[in-house]
């Protein structure tokens, strides 16, 4: 049987997803208005800025650092033959362009992908419009990214 279909592998994926979704709810990242109030730096002078969500990053990164420490002593993860390190490591045009587009979408809606999907549990009106368009954007983005990377490689050679 394929490794990625083994029971422990899928149990890890399921447990990780459960914890992730619970964390998004508990931290209130699932609330678009809360996110926009965190991004609203213009409200700092009048004292209306809500910095709460900055604290999410502190413990999230802290726990991930521990995970990386533990994993660092191993040649492979517990239930796969290798660590799937990120495909790209350099700073390039697609990275910056993508971050700009994502930043606009995040600032417009107060939603990034994790909270948007977790909101399926609460089904706010028009959520499916957002998720459907995210899927469409992801589909188009795949080809845009491929084209941009290919062009960058053509320039380099």
């Amino acid at each position: 049987m394929k490794r990625t279909l083994s029971l422990p592998y899928l149990a890890v994926a399921g447990l990780s997803g459960l914890l992730f979704g619970a964390g998004l709810y508990i931290s209130q990242m699932v609330d678009p208005l809360k996110v926009l109030r965190f991004l609203d730096f213009g409200a700092i002078p009048e004292g209306g800025w809500d910095p709460s969500l900055g604290f999410v990053m502190v413990t999230a990164i802290g726990f991930m650092l521990i995970g990386l420490r533990v994993a660092g002593r191993r040649a492979a993860p517990l239930f796969d033959v290798k660590f799937h390190n990120p495909e790209f490591t350099h700073i390039d045009t697609p990275l910056v362009l993508g971050a700009v587009l994502f930043g606009v979408g995040w600032g417009m809606s107060g939603l990034c992908p994790g909270p948007a999907i977790t909101l399926i549990a609460f089904l706010p009106e028009n959520l499916w419009i957002f998720l459907g368009m995210t899927f469409v954007g992801s589909f188009i983005g795949h080809y845009v990214q491929k084209a941009l990377v290919a062009r960058a490689q053509a320039v380099r050679t």
Binding site: V12, G47, W49, T59, A60, I66, G67, V70, A71, P77
Partner: peptide, 30 residues
């Protein structure tokens, strides 16, 4: 600022971090 909620944010962040750590140590996935 009645909406200021650092404690739930810290606890939620710990859940998210633990989930990420688990997926990396267990399955080697980001």
């Amino acid at each position: 600022m009645e909406a200021f909620s650092p404690v739930p944010a810290l606890i939620g962040g710990a859940f998210i971090g633990a989930a990420s750590a688990l997926l990396w140590v267990g399955n080697g996935r980001i």
